[in-house]
Nucleic acid binder design. Structure first.
Length: 427
RNA sequence: GGAGAGGUGGCAGAGUGGUCGAAUGCACUCGCUUGGAAAGCGAGCAGAGGUGAUGAGCCUCUCGAGGGUUCGAAUCCCUCCCUCUCCGCCA
């Protein structure tokens, strides 16, 4: 959520960000009108309340309270009536009220963009900032991971479909061990880089989901239990970012870094027909997520560090990859700036996203009310939140199988995984 | 799931209808004191919103959340949530 005071003070800045994202900026005029109306209604309510409070206090101070109460009764009754009327009007306009027009507009405004985000409308305008390794040249016809995996007996799509339908996979034997090893490998690296491991709840409340900005745009893509009003997390970004919600942190705690390995659940409703085969796009997938709570002035640099934390994992796994900065039109709702880490996927003949690292600035912190105090005596300020995968397990598995396959269909795993898997060669 | 107890400021902990946004202690900030420190003394110290200049001041709201009673609620009533203890069930 954006700061409404900032929208008032500098509406052009917000309009500019909307235009850069390819969105209609006229909502800002509408929003400012509703805001004006709301504040004027609020002032009215508060003025009448102040008057009533004065009279009540006068009764409290009177020597004969009963007599004073009787005397002021008619006047107070009138004010009470007037308050409930004007209050109803103000509540209907309040940004805090579910379903108010101001709330609806505010809920759907994406974050401001960082100045360094490149212009552009789509993926095509993303800017490569770093490349590591060379895509391997095969002297045989490389197979896609679903063929490799099924032949090796480590991926089972048919039985997963039998259990749950399409877009589910089962890992078996060495595949399950490899996934477990990767998870441990990623978590160990995160720990070494100062992330505190958390095993968070996988079901979260509507309020939590809203606080991290998932509900505004992605409600349709989430699995939920309507009766309990709980949502299966689409990413551990949600519980990790909201972990300290409502708290005021010590400045000494920042940056505060969390890592979690969790399953993620997504309906992927909008992705029908895309990546229908294999592990690429599943309703359920495992991921190690990295989250930062940072001082505002440090978040820009933090994004670079976070991205490097994710990227370096691919280097250790000896997988060719690159880092791109998303352009304005491709940067997601919550983010002010995003670096995607993309790994080479032979079956796609291109680099595919394996981690998306975002600086959400104060956008999530405002809703989640995550603040810190610079000095013991200073006012609380919003932190900046950042998140990124480090890394997605399934996609790492794809990359390892496809990039490291040999002509006979066997797979050689990188040395870095030696401590984490029973064997560094599959098949 | 059942029974009981409880949820108050950064923490601890008073407060059972009227200047209570809230005693006191701790922590913290500033000052005095000191060669320096500790102790001691004095002052300050919740958050959000509106109005004002992103100042001072003024006003509104907030004592788990939401309703209600009342001129007036931290205090009384109702609903819900959470925590703790015991019992039941259970991986």
């Amino acid at each position: 959520m954006l700061d409404i005071a900032l929208i008032r003070r500098d509406p052009d800045r917000v309009r500019h960000a909307l235009v850069r994202r390819g969105l209609d900026a006229s909502v800002i005029d509408e929003l400012l009108r509703f805001d004006e109306e709301y504040r004027s209604a609020l002032t009215t309510v508060e003025r009448i309340k102040a008057e009533k409070n004065r009279l009540s206090a006068a009764i409290g101070k009177a020597p004969d309270k009963g007599a004073a109460a009787r005397e002021l009764q008619p006047k107070i009754a009138e004010l009470t009536k007037s308050i409930s009327e004007s209050e109803e009007r103000a509540r209907g306009l309040s940004p805090a009220e579910q379903g108010s027009p101001l709330r609806a507009l505010l809920d759907n405004l994406p974050n401001l963009l960082d100045d360094s985000v490149p212009d552009g409308a789509s993926e095509a305008a993303n800017v490569e900032v770093r490349r590591w390794g060379e895509p391997r040249r095969f002297d045989f016809a490389p197979k896609p991971h679903w063929e490799l995996g099924e032949r090796l007996g480590i991926l089972d799509f048919a039985r997963a479909a039998k259990l749950s339908g399409s877009r589910f996979a089962a890992l078996t034997g060495a595949g399950a061990q490899l996934a477990r090893g990767l998870t441990a490998f990623f978590l160990d690296r995160a720990a070494a880089r100062g992330y505190a491991e958390v095993a968070p709840p996988l079901l979260v409340s509507r309020e939590t989901m809203w606080s991290t900005g998932q509900l505004s745009k992605f409600a349709d893509a989430m699995f939920a239990d309507a009766q309990a009003d709980l949502f299966l997390i689409p990413t551990a970004e949600v519980p990790l970012t909201a972990f300290r919600s409502g708290e005021i942190l010590d400045a000494a705690e920042l940056p505060c870094k969390y890592a979690a390995a969790t399953p993620c659940f997504r309906k992927e409703a909008g992705a029908a027909g895309k990546d229908t085969r294999g592990l690429m796009r599943q309703h359920q997938f495992d991921k190690v997520e990295l989250v930062w709570l940072s001082r505002p002035e440090a978040s820009h640099e933090a994004l670079e560090t976070l991205t490097e934390d994710a990227r370096s994992l691919l280097e250790e796994l000896e997988l060719p990859h690159r880092v791109v900065t998303l352009c304005a039109g491709d940067t997601s709702f919550n983010a002010a700036k995003t670096h995607d880490v993309e790994v080479w996927i032979p079956s796609s003949d291109t680099y595919r996203e394996i981690s998306s690292c975002s600086n959400c600035t104060d956008f999530q912190a405002r809703r989640a009310a995550i603040r810190f105090r610079r000095e013991a005596a200073s006012k609380p300020e919003l932190v900046h939140t950042l998140n990124g995968s480090g890394l997605a397990i399934g996609r790492t598995l794809i990359a390892l199988l496809e990039n490291n396959q040999r002509a006979d269909g066997s797979i050689v795993l990188p040395k870095a995984l030696e401590p984490y898997v029973p064997t560094t060669r599959l098949g």
